[in-house]
């Protein structure tokens, strides 16, 4: 299988530098890292990709069974690492990708040597004595929102589906649809993301880990950041003065500074 094509893999930056893999979370695609890549490109080899079902991945490779668990996405990460024969790379994962990175590092320890977890949460739904911030009904509501915005997806994706890839205006349309995903695939990703429970996997992390959290993040509140920090032995927690769930977009300088500082400490 052509992993490069399946996951729309992009390699950029300094070919001689240590490798940093940037993994997007649920919702959009590798474009999320557009303000991060310039900060890394001079010293690091940067690998970007889209999960199957997101961005410009090969939609025909989607399997509702495989991606019904985070392990399926983690296997994709390992396969991307294998295809590029990465050793000791640093995996930067946003949101659900932070947990996918934990699983992938467990599967292929020789390939992933460090983790940066941006706004991570191992469990979104409240549980006995644990506050993730959401109830199961809230997640159903999100699925409803995905469905309501189906029509916007159709308009953006219709030319792609109809195979008019030669049309020059297509690039423009794609630029306006970073978050466009097939609704059925988005639904699977949303369910997998928000219904899984990876709390027990945190204990198994054996690599240097940086956790980035925001001061005001409705998806990953600070209690959750503290939980992750406490669960991963030897991890570092940095709280960014940022609002929302995407500090790499809303507070890029602070985010980049934290990441490059961590990477420098690894060398």
């Amino acid at each position: 299988m052509d992993i490069d094509r399946r996951n729309n893999v992009t390699v950029t930056g300094n070919p001689q530098g240590p490798t940093v893999v940037l993994a997007h979370g649920f919702g959009c695609d590798q474009n999320m890292w557009r303000l991060t890549v310039p900060a890394l490109a001079e010293d690091y080899r940067v690998v970007l990709f889209d999960y199957v079902g997101s961005g410009r991945s090969d939609l025909s490779a989607f399997s509702a069974d495989r991606y019904a668990s985070l392990d399926g996405y983690a296997r994709d990460v390992v396969e991307v690492c294998e295809a590029l024969d990465l050793r000791d790379a640093t995996f930067v994962g946003h949101s659900v990708s932070a947990m996918i990175g934990v699983l992938a590092a467990g599967m292929a320890p020789e390939r992933i040597g460090a983790l940066v977890m941006v706004a991570p949460s191992p469990r979104y739904i409240d549980d006995d004595g644990y506050r993730g911030g959401f109830s199961a009904e809230d997640i159903d509501e999100l699925l409803g929102s995905l469905e309501s915005n189906y029509l916007g997806w159709s308009a953006a994706m219709a030319p792609v589906i109809m195979g008019n890839a030669e049309r020059p205006e297509l690039g423009e349309e794609l630029k306006n649809s970073f978050c466009a995903t097939d609704p059925d695939m988005a639904r699977v990703f949303a369910q997998t993301t928000f219904l899984s429970d990876s709390r027990d996997d945190l204990k198994g992390v054996r690599v240097p880990t940086l956790i980035l959290e925001c001061t005001h993040d409705v998806i990953a509140p600070r209690e959750v950041g503290a939980f992750v920090h406490q669960a991963i032995p030897g991890s570092t927690l940095v709280t960014l003065d940022a609002t929302g769930h995407c500090p790499h977009l809303s507070a890029p300088e602070a985010t980049n500074e934290a990441i490059t500082g961590f990477l420098a400490g690894l060398r």
């Binding site: 919702g27 959009c28 959401f134 915005n149 977009l249």
Partner: peptide
């Protein structure tokens, strides 16, 4: 986001806000 339902908040944070930032 305080004006939105919880599902709407999630959608806002995962789709709306990043797209607005990028575009």
């Amino acid at each position: 986001t305080d004006l939105l339902t919880v599902g709407g908040k999630l959608y806002h944070e995962t789709h709306f806000a990043p797209l607005l930032r990028m575009q």
